[in-house]
Design a protein around this nucleic acid. Structure first.
Length: 864
RNA sequence: GGAUGUUUAGCUCAGCUGGGAGAGCAUCGCCUUUACACGGCGGAGGUCAGAGGUUCGAGCCCUCUAACAUCCACCA
């Protein structure tokens, strides 16, 4: 078999994935091996996958393919997330475009719509996984709303409730008036908005000629005000504390109280207090036994207790109220004011803090368990890079209780039932038998509630005796972006510890996000997103994967760069062509078998030695999830050692009748195979295609083992002798360029060396166009010398000019500086005492070489 | 206000536990040599943000400063 002249990624990738899948290579379950498991972060069923998913999946798949090649039974478990708010927003929008709403069609019909949506998008996601080439085990695919996950969710809810860790409470929560649901604190994103600061007169109740000035950004909440608060140390207001003022919005009498919370220097130092619509005011309200007056509906319209404003939208109300207060002469001024305003992460609506009854998880005991666990080196979760552990610890150290109820339809219904007549509350995983007497809680759970259980609910939990749970839990690694540590990683860790007594995974590998070429975040509004499918169609998935895995260092953001994708493609083409060369040069029916290592040619020993070192370094980096380092070590080996040096050399040995060619064939195939295995996790398609053209291949590279480091293949003497040849060739080439000689100018050479340089002339004539090579025991006068440790090579003709003299002078200058530096070090007592001996010896050797070279250059200069 | 990250060649970025700075792209010169022009050979280009300090030795460790970025918490 022979490879095509050009690496055609389309031909290479076409149909390959379905063959792998059909052959069952993605299915875990080989009990003879040690297990390695990971779950995919389930993508939302809201749309198609973007390049952020691509980097995530690429790193996961590299990890899995590497581990599989290293002999593990790998489980890479796929699935999708129902994505409560996000999906419901999409389905709501679809219904709206058809002139319908979820309320007009009812819960059942809505759920059908939503499931249709989910199915359609799951299909899209599947086709994208296929395009990305990820080896997920479809036989174990899960969905966060499937039966097993629902069972796990109910179990967790009930147990946490019974343990007192879930409670129902009336508290200020962030309300999204567009989606009409409560949100957790981390679903609120703060943005700087242009707002207004309104200054109002609050006349004294007993003397309308006097007033307090109170400033606010949200005048519409004044209907819920119960008092005005000033700082007790604020001299301006000492006399008014304890008196009453008139709320200019509704003309009600409210007291002025004093509390140190108020910042004297901010605004006017007098703050209106709305206990039901502001978290800080809520605390003050509790402290001073205030009423909690809710004045806004969940859709952002004003309640009946707002007089003429009842039913108005909050902003409409604000505008009208301000102008009415102005008419009454109580508006002092309006200032422009930039401030941070909370927006809903999903709908972007300005969130309203509203007092409402919701379900919460009590975080403190759960978080403390996480913090405790991180102190134990044996059971802690290891972050790569390590600094991200701080993000977890910091958040766990001071997080608020988690509001888990959502006023949505798409999600896990809260397993709480209210008795129709007795009003008794029942928390139960199973529906009550006399369901007709009960009403189930209308709310669903936060999506992240089920996501938090993902690492174990997908493996059979709560049935801890299930095969997969016993074998594959806990997971070995979790790969995800840093933007999701709070939302997901932290919650998986505390739920895992609480319910399985184990951290859900040993390692967490954190990666950054892909930005556009200018470093901006990709977003719909900017329209700067890169569709991975477009990249795959242009450059192939192997190039995209290589690019994504190798462009950024761990945890760091990266910029999308088409040039780099292209250069990844060039690299793969290079590997393709090196393979093509090798396959062209081994005999037709060559059988790959071991050979007599002692008889190997020096150039073969040289590359085998370098290969072993490469395997060692690459493996070490792969084990540390450091794919950037692994790939660059391999890259340098492939380009410099393998292609530029070794393959060129074999052009000589393969034509040499006396050479041990069996050894060269062996070395060629062994090295190529190792290179393929090392590139395979990154770019599996091209690796497979070439692999299947090797002699004695298995059915697929997916069945092949990763190369092991073998120290019986280290031939250090031969390695350094051959390196000397490479250096001589390089020196002659430089000489030609510097002396304006044609690259193929023929030269007479003389050599003085103790080294056994096998077939040196062959190599020099082939790669440096040597006309002759003679041995000499002394310096050749008037010739240019290439001086290496233990070798001097003289270029006898091609003679000098003034330029050459200048060059020598320059070289002498450089050498003198080196010698000065070296002498400085070697004369430094501290260095000699404190530096490691090996380092000192290296420096001494360098020094000797410098001296020798200088002496020879001086000679040469004299002879000119 | 708290925290983290970044600052290295024209551009985008590597640089592992401190021991004389690398890659890709771009650029210059030469080469169509039967693996590859998606290439080969050779070159040019860096006070490693700044200032101190530790060390025999600092891009790397410590302190401070500056710019940029991100996250968390936020005063009505």
């Amino acid at each position: 078999m022979a490879l095509d002249k050009k690496y055609d990624f389309k031909a290479v990738e076409e149909g390959r994935y379905s063959k792998w899948k059909a052959a069952g290579y993605f299915t875990a379950g080989d009990k003879s091996k040690q297990k390695f498991s990971m779950v995919i972060p389930p993508p939302n069923v809201t749309g198609k996958l973007h390049i952020g998913h691509s980097i995530d999946n690429t790193i996961q798949d590299i990890t899995c393919r590497y581990k599989k090649a290293k002999g593990f039974d790998v489980l890479y478990l796929p699935g999708v997330d129902h994505a409560g708010i996000a999906t419901q927003a999409k389905v709501d929008a679809k219904l709206a475009s058809e002139g319908k709403s979820r309320f007009s069609i009812g819960r059942e019909a809505f759920m059908k719509e939503a499931f249709d949506w989910k199915n359609k998008h799951t299909d899209i996601i599947h086709s994208q996984w296929e395009k990305m080439g990820i080896m997920v085990d479809y036989s174990r695919e899960r969905f966060t709303l499937d039966e097993g996950c629902s069972k796990a969710v109910n179990e967790v809810f009930v147990r946490l409730y019974n343990e007192g860790l879930i409670y129902q409470g009336e508290r200020i929560v962030n309300y999204d008036p567009v989606m009409k649901t409560a949100l957790s604190n981390i679903e609120v994103v703060y943005k700087e908005d242009d707002g207004k600061f309104f200054y109002f007169k609050y006349p004294y109740a007993d003397d309308s000629s006097k007033f307090l000035t109170v400033a606010t950004t949200r005048p519409e909440t004044m209907f819920g005000d119960t008092c005005v608060v000033v700082n007790p140390n604020d001299d301006r207001y000492k006399d008014v504390v304890g008196k009453f003022v008139i709320n200019p919005a509704n003309h009600e009498k409210i007291p002025v109280i004093a509390d140190e919370y108020v910042d004297i220097t901010f605004g006017t130092g007098a703050m209106k207090c709305t206990p039901a619509h502001d978290p800080n005011d809520f605390i003050i309200g509790k402290k001073y036994n205030q009423k909690f007056i809710v004045i806004m509906n969940v859709d952002g319209t004003m309640k009946e207790n707002c007089g003429i404003y009842a039913g108005m939208d909050r902003i409409e109300c604000r505008n009208l109220l301000v102008s009415n207060i102005e008419k009454e002469g109580n508006l002092i001024k309006i200032e422009d004011y930039k401030h941070q305003v909370g927006h809903s992460e999903r709908s972007d609506a300005v969130v309203e803090p509203i007092l409402s009854k919701q379900w919460f998880i009590k975080m403190k005991p759960l978080a403390e368990r996480v913090l405790e666990n991180q102190k134990n080196p044996d059971t802690k979760v290891n972050f790569y890079p390590a600094r991200f552990e701080n993000v977890l610890i910091q958040w766990m150290s001071n997080c608020d209780d988690w509001c888990i109820s959502r006023q949505l339809w798409w999600g896990h219904r809260i397993p709480v039932y209210y008795h129709k007549t007795t009003k008794k509350l029942l928390v139960s995983a199973e529906k009550p038998k006399d369901i007709e007497n009960w009403t189930q809680d209308e709310d669903v759970l936060d999506t992240w509630f089920s996501s938090a259980l993902w690492p174990f609910e997908t493996m059979g939990w709560p049935d801890e005796s299930s095969d997969d749970f016993k074998r594959y839990y806990p997971n070995d690694v979790m790969v995800t972006g840093y933007d999701i540590i709070f939302f997901w990683v932290a919650r998986m860790v505390f739920q895992g510890l609480h319910f399985t007594n184990k951290a859900p995974f040993k390692d967490v590998v954190i990666h950054g996000i892909v930005r556009d070429s200018q470093g901006r975040k990709m977003s719909k509004s900017l329209g700067n997103g890169i569709d991975p499918i477009d990249v795959i169609n242009t450059y192939g998935v192997d190039s995209l994967r290589y690019f994504l895995a190798t462009t950024a260092s761990p945890g760091q953001d990266m910029r999308y760069s088409e040039e780099k994708v292209k250069s990844s493609n060039n690299y793969l083409n290079k590997i393709w062509n090196s393979a093509r060369f090798i396959l062209m040069n081994i005999p037709e029916n060559y059988e790959f078998k071991s050979v007599d290592l002692n008889k190997l040619e020096a150039v073969d020993k040289n590359i085998l030695t370098k290969l072993e070192r490469t395997i060692e370094k690459v493996t070490k980096a792969m084990d540390a999830y450091d794919y950037g380092v692994a790939s660059s070590v391999l890259y340098n080996f492939v380009y410099d050692d393998f292609c530029s040096n070794y393959l060129e050399m074999t052009k000589v040995t393969l034509k040499n009748e006396n050479a041990y060619k069996e050894g060269t064939y062996f070395t060629l195939i062994k090295t190529l195979k190792a290179v393929l295995m090392m590139i395979y996790p990154f770019s599996p398609f091209i690796a497979e295609e070439i692999y299947l053209n090797l002699p004695q291949h298995l059915d697929s590279i997916m069945l092949e083992s990763y190369p092991e480091y073998e120290n019986n293949l280290l031939f250090e003497d031969d390695e350094s002798r051959v390196n000397t040849i490479y250096e001589l060739i390089e020196g002659i080439r430089q000489y030609k360029v510097q002396n304006d000689l044609a690259p193929n100018a023929a030269l007479d050479l003389a050599i003085n060396s103790d080294l056994k340089l096998d077939d040196l002339y062959q190599y020099l004539s082939r790669f440096a166009f040597a006309k002759s090579l003679t041995e000499t025991k002394e310096e050749v006068k008037g010739a240019t010398a290439i001086i290496l440790p233990k070798v001097s090579l003289y270029i006898v003709d091609g003679i000098d000019k003034e330029e050459l003299k200048n060059k020598i002078l320059k070289e002498i200058e450089v050498l003198k500086n080196e010698i000065k530096r070296s002498e400085g070090m070697l004369n430094n007592k501290n260095f000699l005492e404190k530096a490691p001996e090996a380092k000192i010896n290296v420096e001494k050797e360098k020094y000797q070489n410098f001296k020798l070279k200088l002496q020879q250059l001086d000679e040469k200069l004299k002879n000119l």
